[in-house]
Amino acid sequence: MKVKLMRKRTNVIMRHLAFKIGAALVLAIVWTFLLAYLLFGYFLYQTEHLLFDLANSFVMFYLFYEGYIRIITFLDRRFPKWQMNAEKYIVGLVLFKVYSLLVFVLVSFLPARLLFGDVFISPLSDAAELRLSFIMLVLVSALYYGILTSFHIFKNIHQASLQAEKMQKEIAQAQFDTLKSQVNPHFLFNSLNVLTSLIPLDPDMAEKFTEQLSKAYRYVLEHKADDMVLLKTELEFIHAYLFLIDIRFKDKLKLNINLPADRLHWLLPPLTLQLLIENAIKHNVLSKKSPLHIDIFVDENDYLCVTNNLQVRDDKMISTGVGLRNITNRYGYLTDKPTHFGVEGKSYVTKIPLLQSV
């Protein structure tokens, strides 16, 4: 693992170095021939001067990039890292211009004087050559700084976006884990209450109830760490769960499941159906005379739909919306497809996307 990581870092460093060398070489060629044309009126001149100018221009632009990185690092320590305001930009530009002037003098001007006695062999006077070189340097350094800073800003924006997305997913995952840890005890608590009351009245039914409770809770334990399960697997749990709640509510709840066979191997977060059924029971009146009807089916957009007739309690419980919000957050962690919850006519409709396995 460490060898792989070191190899990966080495590859990144080598690619970065190759990019710096390639960019410096291209800029050196453009700078040398452009300045030659402005001074002489043509691109080619004495070979020894040409090779020297290409070499020191290459070193100059390579040092420009190294200096720019250190200036930006300095600015990021003194100013907000993800922000590029006018003050930060101007301070950086001034620092870079001073740095680029020093590099030009040390790498290009002084070596040329020492080797050739003149910076250029041209019809212009030394003063005119220096003025032109200085003007070109000012323009090129400003353009160079502006282009690199634009890339730096875009890189920061992209990194901030990735960081925000990562944080959002981490929050959604934490909410997902919290939801699962809350559902398990709640489900067990209700089931044990029913079992306690059932044992003295009907021991045989209590035994069957215990078997189904064991089957249902095994599902909870086996899949509590999973992000998604097959719809078929969730339905097997729901059938055991329905046996348990049918004991609680007798004939007060009617559940109609109509799912195509070719969708049973699609995916959804575990315990989602159980939570939606529990939510419908929580907010509606159930009676033998007016049972709560819950329909589960798949629509034309491959959304799993859970609908129930509205029989809102008179003593309507205050809903925090935590359960449905957690389902939305769970799906936000898994997919970009939206969820839907709301009243449509005389029914409450929930639509959650089924996901295909990769």
Rank of each mutant, 00 (worst) to 15 (best):
L63Q: 04
L50T: 12
E48L: 12
I21H: 12
F19W: 12
G67W: 00
F40C: 00
I69E: 15
I72H: 01
A28Q: 05
F61A: 03
R70G: 11
K20G: 01
R78E: 07
L63M: 14
L54P: 02
V26D: 09
Y65D: 05
L17A: 14
Y65N: 03
F33N: 02
L50P: 07
Y62C: 07
L63E: 09
L39C: 03
R78I: 07
T32Y: 04
D53Q: 13
E48P: 13
D76W: 11
G67E: 04
E66P: 01
Y45V: 02
F58N: 02
N56K: 13
R70W: 06
I71M: 04
N56C: 08
A36S: 15
N56W: 09
L38Q: 06
R70K: 12
I71H: 01
R77A: 12
I29N: 03
D76L: 10
L38A: 11
Y42M: 00
A18E: 14
L50R: 05
A36Q: 07
Y65S: 06
T32H: 05
V30Q: 04
Y68H: 10
T47F: 09
F19P: 08
Y68M: 07
V30K: 03
K20D: 10
S57D: 00
F52T: 06
V30F: 10
S57A: 10
V30T: 08
G22H: 10
T73P: 03
F52Y: 11
L39Q: 05
L25M: 13
F58I: 04
I72V: 14
L50N: 07
F61H: 05
L51I: 14
Y65R: 04
A28H: 06
E66A: 13
L34C: 08
F33H: 07
A28W: 05
L51F: 12
V59Q: 03
L34S: 09
K20T: 09
G41P: 01
V30M: 08
A24L: 07
Q46V: 08
Y37Q: 01
F52K: 00
